[in-house]
Amino acid sequence: NIFRILADLSHLASIVILLETIRKARQIDGISLKTQILYVLVFCTRYLDLLTFRWTSLYNTLMKFFFIGTSVYVVKLMQDCKLTNPVSYKDMMFRDTFQIKYLLGPCALLALVFNYKFTVLELCWSFSIWLESVAILPQLFMLSRSGKASTLTTHYIFALGLYRALYIPNWIWRYYSENRLEKLSIFTGLLQTALYSDFFYIYYRKVMKGRGFELP
């Protein structure tokens, strides 16, 4: 359906914006390495089904490879910055102080409690869906600590947030058209979107009206 397509396109756009930002500017100011590492973990644990060869569709498979590949590539580009732009790298590390163990632990526990089946694949899937819902927190934390961000960085976060937000009408659509109600994705998707709500509000008030992103 249209919401699902738009959501996935928005997800693709967010990654393209991020890659272009890092490659063009040759700096990583304001981008959280921790969030990017969490996304590698999210995609690698979610798409383990690639190994089972029970593929849903060519579209899904290509997208999965794209998300795993680009998330690893982003982390590599950011690590390269250590040599090519050490000032920017140090500055990023100085601000990227969120303790991700407070996300990883609870997500692992939640995956053990809430899952569709007690198998390695399903537990990893559940872990990834919980982790995705909070993976942006180091990035938002960094943003709130520095109080401002480059416009491109905010476009990236907006596109990334929009992706999960658009999955919500997709789930409503699927409930009515297929009678499908996938509770875990829906709950974590709502949680994820809620975490972005503050950001969305400031983005709408400032960036969309041509003013820079600056926190009150």
């Binding site: 699902r4 996935d8 997800h11 979610r46 089904d49 849903t56 569709s57 899904n60 997208m63 999965k64 998300f67 569709y116 089946k117 899937w125 999955y167 997709n170 996938e182 875990l184 994705s185």
Partner: peptide, 10 residues
């Protein structure tokens, strides 16, 4: 109540 769900979303 279905216990297994096909993960056809990304």
């Amino acid at each position: 109540e279905g216990t297994e769900v096909e993960h056809d979303e990304l």
